[in-house]
Simulated assay, not measured.
Amino acid sequence: MNNGEPFLHAALIGAAAPNPGEKVIHVGAGTGYYTTLLAMLVLPNGHVQAFEIDRGLADRARENLEPFEGIAVTNDDATALPMQSASLGYVSASVVALPAHQLEALLPGGRIILPWQANKRTGLPSLITRTPAGYEARH
């Protein structure tokens, strides 16, 4: 999902409904544009932990996000790292299967939104919410 699709990102962020004070995990932060928007939506007392696998993009994100409080950028593969607990996950990179540890990191009532790559030609935005009974998915 590229950053040149602001209406799509707006719809996905709106569906994820970030709230003040929430902790957000952003996977695929790029240069940090949407990370900044997420951070602004969880003010006050919110925090965004951003992951970017590409070193050059992660360095640019750190530089771009330096003026903002409550944002940390990690240059690594988020699918291979343990996740801290969070109330919201925002995944900008399409996935065939979401790593189980990313679902398990969701706090009760937490949600994660991602572009699920159903097949080579089809991407499907999906919102997964952690409920007392398990997880619910809405496409």
Rank of each mutant, 00 (worst) to 15 (best):
Thr79Ile: 09
Phe68Ala: 02
Glu104Asn: 10
Ile53Arg: 12
Pro99Met: 14
Arg60His: 10
Leu65Gln: 04
Arg60Gly: 06
Val48Pro: 08
Ala97His: 13
Thr31Trp: 01
Leu103Glu: 13
Gly30Ser: 05
Gly109Lys: 01
Pro18Ile: 10
Ala93Trp: 07
Lys23Gly: 01
Pro99Glu: 15
Gln84Trp: 01
Ser85Phe: 02
Val95Met: 15
Asp59Thr: 13
Pro108Ser: 13
Ser85Gln: 09
Gly32Met: 01
Thr36Ser: 11
Leu38Cys: 09
Pro99Gly: 13
Ile71Asn: 01
Ala100Phe: 11
Leu65Ser: 04
Gly109Phe: 08
Gly32Ile: 03
Thr74Pro: 05
Phe51Gly: 01
Thr35Leu: 06
Leu37Gly: 00
Ala29Lys: 00
Phe51Ile: 03
Glu52Val: 08
Asp77Ser: 06
Ala86Leu: 03
Asp59Tyr: 07
Ile25Cys: 12
Ala80Glu: 11
Arg60Ser: 12
Ser92Asn: 11
Tyr34His: 11
Ala39Leu: 02
Tyr90Met: 14
Ile25Asn: 00
Val95Ala: 15
Ser92Phe: 15
Ile53Trp: 02
Phe68His: 07
Val95Pro: 01
Pro82Arg: 14
His47Met: 11
Val27Glu: 05
Leu81Trp: 09
Gly110Asp: 04
Ala80Asp: 04
Pro108Met: 15
Thr31Asp: 09
Leu81Arg: 15
His26Val: 05
Leu103Pro: 15
Gln49Thr: 14
Val95Asn: 02
Glu52Lys: 06
Pro67Ile: 11
Pro108Trp: 09
Ala86Ser: 12
Glu69Arg: 02
Leu98Asn: 07
Gly21Pro: 07
Tyr34Gln: 10
Thr31Tyr: 04
Ser87Met: 08
Leu107Glu: 15
Asn45Ile: 00
Leu107Trp: 00
Gly28Arg: 06
Gln102Cys: 14
Pro82Lys: 14
Leu38Asn: 06
Leu37Ile: 15
Gln49Met: 09
Gly89Asp: 04
Leu107Asn: 10
Met83Lys: 00
Ala97Cys: 05
Leu38His: 05
Glu66Met: 10
Gly110Val: 09
Glu63Ser: 09
Pro99Thr: 14
Ala58Pro: 06
Leu37His: 13
Gly110Ala: 13
Val24Glu: 11
Gln49Asn: 06
Glu63Cys: 05
Ile71Thr: 01
Val96Thr: 15
Thr35Tyr: 02
Asp76Phe: 01
Leu41Trp: 04
Ser92His: 03
Tyr90Cys: 12
Ala97Gly: 00
Gly30Asp: 12
Gly109Cys: 12
Leu107Lys: 06
Thr31Lys: 08
Ala93Gln: 04
Val48Glu: 09
Ile25Asp: 01
Ser92Met: 15
Gly89Ile: 02
Gln102Ile: 15
Gly109Trp: 00
Ser87Pro: 00
Thr74Gly: 00
Ala78Phe: 14
Ala97Leu: 11
Ser94Asn: 14
Gln49Trp: 08
Thr36Val: 02
Gly89Lys: 00
Gln84Phe: 02
Ile53Lys: 13
Val91Arg: 02
Leu106Pro: 07
Leu88Asn: 08
Arg55Lys: 14
Asn75Pro: 04
His101Glu: 11
Gly21Asn: 02
Leu38Thr: 03
Leu106Lys: 04
Tyr90Ile: 05
Asp76Cys: 12
Met83Cys: 10
Ala61Pro: 05
Arg55Asp: 11
Ala100Thr: 14
Ala58His: 05
Val73Lys: 12
Asn45Glu: 08
Leu103His: 08
Glu63His: 15
Val73Thr: 03
